[in-house]
Simulated scan of single mutants.
Amino acid sequence: MEKLQTEQKASSTTFQVSEINVSYRPKVKASERPKVSTSKEVYDILFNNWDLDKMELLEQFKILLLTRANRVIGIYEVSSGGMAGTVADPKLIFSAALKACASSIILSHNHPSGNLKPSQADISLTQKLRTAGSFLDIDVLDHIILTSEGYISFVDEGLI
């Protein structure tokens, strides 16, 4: 009897799986989305949408999601960390890009110290994400490091 109950339990849970739904509801009409073509335009959008109370307090990593025409779909906050760093998980980055049907992304993070020089970890992460993006046909166009006083673009500096 006990064996029969165990078998019934096993068979009833075999087909119980979660259904995954993907949805995307833009808040801005396609024609009203800003178009970016320079690192300064990207910086201005990021800076104006950053919580300035956190700019010098902790490190945050965000991505700008773009259409094929470089129109901004949105900004996604990947992580928020401490004074010395934060985690940029490629799975979270590309899941957001895929969900938004982004054709390309621009990486960004702030340096609370005010130092605009990219670390070796910043450079390595950028290369890793560019490689991953190439497999998904999602271009990583740039990586912007922001501070309260300015920014640096990996493309402008020849790092990409």
Rank of each mutant, 00 (worst) to 15 (best):
E2H: 13
L4A: 14
L4N: 13
Q8N: 11
S11I: 08
V17L: 04
S18W: 10
E19R: 14
E19K: 14
E19Q: 12
N21H: 15
N21D: 05
R25H: 10
R25L: 09
V28L: 14
V28I: 15
K29P: 03
E32R: 06
E32W: 00
V42F: 00
V42N: 05
L46D: 10
F47W: 05
E56R: 06
L58D: 05
Q60K: 06
I63C: 03
L66Q: 03
L66R: 01
T67G: 04
A69K: 10
I73R: 01
G74P: 03
I75M: 07
V78R: 07
S79K: 07
A84D: 13
G85I: 04
A88N: 03
D89K: 13
I93Q: 00
I93Y: 00
I93V: 11
F94D: 02
A96C: 07
A97F: 11
L98V: 07
K99R: 13
S103F: 00
I106A: 02
L107I: 03
L107N: 02
S108R: 02
N110E: 10
H111S: 05
G114R: 00
G114H: 04
G114E: 09
L116V: 05
K117W: 04
P118Q: 10
D122M: 01
L125H: 02
L125W: 00
T126A: 11
Q127F: 05
A132C: 11
G133H: 09
S134P: 00
S134R: 15
D137S: 15
D137A: 15
H143G: 05
I144Y: 03
I145N: 09
I145F: 06
L146P: 09
L146I: 15
T147P: 07
E149Q: 12
G150N: 13
I152C: 07
S153D: 05
S153N: 08
F154A: 14
G158F: 03
